[in-house]
Design a protein around this nucleic acid. Sequence first.
DNA 1: CACTTGACCTGTCCGC
DNA 2: TGCGGACAGGTCAAGT
Length: 289
Amino acid sequence: MPELPEVETVKRGLHKLIIGHKISAVSNDNPKSFPNALNDVAQFMVNANIIDVRRRAKVLLIDLSTKYTLVIHLKMTGQLVFVNKLDRFGAGHPSSSLINELPDKSTRVIIDFKGGSHLYFNDQRKFGWVRLIPTLEVSNMSFMMKVGPEPLEADFTASEFANRFKRRARTTIKAAILDQTVIAGVGNIYADESLWGAKIHPSRLVNTITKSEFTELYKQVRLIMNLAIEKGGSTIIDYVNAEGKKGGYMSFARVFRREGLACSRCGNEIIKIKVASRGTHICPYCQQL
DNA sequence: CACTTGACCTGTCCGC
DNA sequence: TGCGGACAGGTCAAGT
């Protein structure tokens, strides 16, 4: 699921829903999903207030009044869903909702708030995780130390974008754009969408991409991920926002999971290939080697 | 260092 | 209907 636009959508939702809430209890059914020792949770989470919700790359950061931060990675199937005590999923729930009743069998961590609302961390495949870390130490985590710049920041330039790829000169552009140490936040959906937008074949080697192609790719990454945020992200199977609702970007997708359909630019058939051992969608006419 | 592959998990879908 | 295999939004640890 969660690439930058999905994590940003969850962040915005949680920002509205949980700031100011006080944690009353925490439970965890899977040690790998939340490996912190119970005494840390008791000491630094219970009775803490939520003071901010942030995002860096595909990672969510929930800052607590104890100067600890919940660092959360949703990986492929993670969800963070807030349920107010008055909400009732099921009969009458919005058709865009994927969530019927929580907790369910994918629920790994439950954070209860005073007043009776709950935050559920669900994760079918158990790749995702939650960690409780002192706020000042978050930037020292190994992932944070090596992750690349945020591509949607206003001051992030096309030349900086191109320069980041020099470290991956002899690999494919698809592998490089998915590399989080090059650019933060691009995953398989937005890699394919952006490469189609820039008319670049994903198997092209980085050192064959021209400066003007990098500039176009930079523009497409920003255009497409900003649009995806506006549409609330992409739901393939599992992704939902903080209210349990699907994202709307997939109806705007131009290649991702559209194999067999016509390219909206030239009418040729979109195909699915494998690049960097990832399923990859291209228009073989618009994106040539 | 740069690069590739397998591993981590569960569930679903497809072909036999 | 059942069963094996491939595949799925992401990262790591190993290997070359």
